[in-house]
Amino acid sequence: EQLARLKREFNENRYLTERRRQQLSSELGLNEAQIKIWFQNERA
Results as ranks from 00 to 15, higher is better:
39 F>Y: 06
4 A>L: 09
29 G>H: 05
20 R>D: 07
7 K>L: 12
33 A>T: 14
2 Q>M: 12
20 R>Y: 10
41 N>W: 08
36 K>I: 15
6 L>I: 03
12 E>A: 09
12 E>S: 08
16 L>W: 04
43 R>Q: 10
37 I>S: 11
14 R>F: 05
44 A>W: 10
6 L>T: 06
7 K>S: 05
4 A>Q: 11
41 N>Y: 09
27 E>A: 07
4 A>S: 05
8 R>S: 07
23 Q>L: 12
31 N>Y: 05
26 S>I: 14
37 I>D: 12
40 Q>E: 15
16 L>P: 14
43 R>P: 02
3 L>E: 12
43 R>Y: 12
40 Q>N: 09
15 Y>P: 03
27 E>I: 08
15 Y>C: 10
43 R>K: 07
21 R>W: 13
38 W>V: 02
44 A>C: 14
14 R>P: 15
39 F>S: 01
15 Y>K: 06
32 E>Y: 02
27 E>Y: 04
5 R>V: 14
17 T>F: 03
20 R>I: 10
43 R>S: 10
34 Q>D: 14
25 S>M: 08
39 F>I: 00
13 N>Q: 03
42 E>P: 00
4 A>H: 06
5 R>W: 08
42 E>W: 14
29 G>N: 06
14 R>W: 06
1 E>Y: 09
2 Q>Y: 06
36 K>Q: 15
38 W>E: 01
35 I>T: 00
43 R>I: 14
32 E>M: 04
16 L>D: 13
34 Q>R: 04
38 W>S: 02
6 L>G: 02
35 I>Q: 00
8 R>A: 14
25 S>Q: 03
26 S>Q: 14
9 E>V: 05
39 F>E: 04
21 R>E: 07
3 L>Y: 10
28 L>H: 01
6 L>H: 01
12 E>Q: 13
19 R>Q: 15
17 T>V: 02
11 N>H: 11
18 E>T: 12
10 F>C: 00
38 W>C: 00
20 R>Q: 12
23 Q>S: 06
18 E>I: 11
26 S>V: 15
35 I>P: 00
2 Q>G: 03
9 E>S: 03
22 Q>P: 00
30 L>R: 00
13 N>T: 04
42 E>Y: 08
32 E>Q: 08
4 A>E: 15
20 R>N: 03
22 Q>C: 03
10 F>D: 05
25 S>F: 05
18 E>D: 15
40 Q>I: 10
22 Q>W: 06
26 S>W: 13
33 A>E: 15
17 T>I: 01
27 E>R: 03
44 A>F: 08
27 E>P: 02
29 G>S: 05
29 G>W: 04
39 F>H: 02
35 I>K: 00
10 F>M: 02
2 Q>L: 13
20 R>E: 08
23 Q>W: 11
15 Y>A: 04
37 I>Q: 13
4 A>F: 04
17 T>Y: 03
17 T>R: 03
24 L>F: 02
42 E>A: 10
5 R>D: 03
8 R>V: 09
9 E>N: 01
20 R>T: 08
14 R>Y: 04
21 R>K: 12
23 Q>I: 09
